[in-house]
Lab assay of single mutants.
Amino acid sequence: KTVEVNGVKYDFDNPEQAREMAERIAKSLGLQVRLEGDTFKIE
């Protein structure tokens, strides 16, 4: 899975870890996480 923030992509081998990281980043920035294919987009 991939986490994308402001056009910057971070790859994770563990999908659960990617989801947790995406949620943590989104919460700290006051944004939403949206799953698009294999990418968690933070917008």
Score class of each variant (00 low, 15 high):
L29Q: 04
E23W: 13
G7M: 04
D13V: 09
L31H: 05
T2A: 11
E16G: 08
N14S: 13
F12N: 00
V5S: 03
F12D: 00
V8P: 01
K1G: 09
N6M: 13
A22H: 00
R34N: 06
L35R: 07
E16P: 02
E4G: 03
K41Q: 04
K41Y: 15
F40D: 00
I25Q: 02
E20F: 11
L35F: 09
A22G: 02
F40K: 00
V5N: 02
E16W: 12
N6W: 14
D38N: 12
E43L: 12
F12A: 03
Y10I: 08
E20L: 13
G7Q: 03
V33E: 01
Q32M: 12
R34T: 10
E36G: 02
N6R: 07
K9L: 10
I42C: 12
K9R: 14
A26G: 06
K27V: 08
L35E: 09
T2D: 03
R34H: 09
V33H: 03
S28N: 09
E4Q: 10
K41N: 03
G7H: 05
V33P: 03
D11A: 14
T39N: 06
D11M: 15
Y10L: 07
R24Y: 12
E20T: 11
A18V: 03
R34D: 03
Y10W: 10
M21F: 15
L29M: 11
E20A: 13
G7N: 05
G30F: 05
L35D: 05
Q32E: 10
P15Y: 13
R24D: 05
D11V: 15
T39I: 13
V33D: 00
A26C: 12
E36H: 07
V5D: 02
I42V: 12
E23D: 10
V5Q: 01
M21R: 04
D11N: 14
K9G: 04
F12L: 05
I42T: 03
Q17S: 10
E4K: 06
Q17G: 06
T2M: 09
P15R: 07
Q17C: 15
N6D: 09
M21T: 09
E16K: 11
V3N: 00
K1V: 13
E16V: 11
N14L: 08
D13T: 11
T2E: 03
R19W: 11
G37S: 04
R19Q: 07
F40M: 04
G37H: 06
R19N: 03
E16D: 12
P15N: 08
L31D: 00
E20M: 13
I25Y: 07
M21Q: 06
I42A: 02
L31N: 01
E16A: 12
D11W: 15
G37C: 14
K9E: 05
I25E: 02
K41T: 06
G37K: 06
L29C: 14
R19I: 06
F12E: 01
G30N: 07
K41P: 00
G30D: 04
D13W: 07
R24F: 12
E36D: 12
G37Y: 05
E23Y: 15
V3Y: 04
